[in-house]
Nucleic acid binder design. Structure first.
Lengths: 246, 246
DNA sequence: CGCCCGGTTGACTATGGTCAATACGTGTGG
DNA sequence: CCACACGTATTGACCATAGTCAACCGGGCG
């Protein structure tokens, strides 16, 4: 079954082969990575790494969802990254993770010990170029996120999150292209709150409000039906029609 | 005088030679860049580029401060980048800027037309490696910023901003290393509000409060004396002593 | 001189946070 | 099979923080 832990697999069969940091690698470049890679599985809720811990490896997410987050001394936490399949974990050249990394569903990582990876990266422009592109995309996403955190209302934040998740699921080809859309939330209400800089109560209230008004339909707690995507996007506060959809 | 518009200069005399995207370039690599570079000056308040505009060049900030920001249709705006000397503007491979870029003081940019720059970058790992490093640093900064936007109180936000600016000025070697610190704010109250996701009134009130309590001393509106940096850092909500200062 | 811009301060309000009770669903054990 | 407990989610009552609207200050420039 596809959702089981993966222990061994070949790169050519990898589901993220053409999206991950290795996307642009040629045959023999891939062979070098294949030689040093190994898989790790974590269960939902497990911590991959605490902020301040040494991390001996970098990795690509193959399956499941993980979060990057930061915590203030008094316990307030802010999610700063949502890692889905093909996303990269770790920073070449840095030993200590400044973020907590937590599996929010069962996940599989394709890991590379840091040193050999850095060596290969140095010899392989296809990898560092791809990593630059991915990092620039992350930076754009972080900046969109900053707009959400700094300037949007609770309601707009929820609508934005639903839209973002729908977009990412669509990009991975998991959803029917059109028609009433289904969004599968990989996050608990609390995790959504940490994503959006809200409390879980406010998240719950706003979801209830959107449901009451018919903008979304809940099917269970974690599955959302969107009868009219355009209507949901109207609630995000963004410019829906005009502007450039980069 | 050092603060005048710059029209012509050689790379070897450039104040950001060892911090910008060209930092790791060898002699002849630098020559190639020198050949295609040109300077542009903008006055405080001028717009370098509106979101959605085509930008024919990428650039390094040599002098002054500029902001990257995003605006919602109803006018709410969030700053998503504060560009100081040595910071890079633009994204290789992208034609249209998704952000407004605005000079907040008089600035000088070292510009490269996009196409030739991309060409040189492709042939010059020293440039793309440096750009990757800078982008990863930006991403870390964006994530720290997300924590500020999502979880900190108005008071903590102000203290954090002062600390960040002090840190950046110190890194550029503009300040005496220790003793009562001077911080030169490159931003108006409104720009600080856009940085922090606050209103300008709240910024003003919190600055007044910190002044009233003696944590900071204003010398004019834009110059802040910090008698005890540690005390200011206590107000940021961050873990001051423990934790890893990355 | 008077205007304009940036900044400060005050009074009032609204949004979202806090604390607490309750509901729901699933797995465990009697 | 049902009872219970635990984790997750919902809802309500109340409150605090920051936003809104408005008046006012002060310096620089035409």
């Amino acid at each position: 079954m596809a959702n089981q832990a993966i222990v061994e697999a070949e790169c050519k069969d990898c589901p993220i082969r053409h999206n991950a940091v290795c996307a642009r690698c040629e045959r023999e470049e891939l062979d070098k990575l294949e030689e040093i890679k190994y898989y790790r599985n974590y269960e939902a809720g497990q911590t991959v790494c605490w902020a301040g811990d040494e991390m001996g490896f970098v990795a690509s997410v193959i399956r499941g969802a993980a979060t990057l987050s930061q915590t203030l001394e008094d316990g307030r936490t802010q999610m700063v990254g949502l890692l889905l399949p093909s996303d990269f974990i770790g920073r070449p050249g840095r030993v200590v993770s400044p973020y907590d990394i937590i599996a929010v569903s069962d996940i599989t990582l394709c890991c590379f010990r840091r040193k050999p990876f850095e060596q290969i990266m140095h010899e392989t422009p296809h990898i560092s170029e791809r990593l630059l592109d991915m990092t620039l995309d992350e930076l754009d996403a972080a900046r969109e996120w900053m707009l959400i955190l700094g300037r949007k209302t609770a309601r707009e934040k929820i609508a934005s999150l639903l839209t973002i998740i729908a977009r990412r699921e669509a990009a991975m080809g998991l959803t029917a292209a059109s028609g009433p859309l289904m969004v599968e939330l990989p996050l608990t209400r609390e995790a959504m709150a940490d994503y959006l800089g809200l409390t879980l109560e406010t998240v719950s209230r706003q979801i209830s409000a959107l449901k009451r008004e018919g903008t979304i339909i809940l099917e269970g707690k974690r599955r959302v039906r969107v009868p009219d995507m355009h209507r949901l996007m109207m609630e995000t506060g963004d410019d829906v029609d005009g502007g450039v959809i980069a």
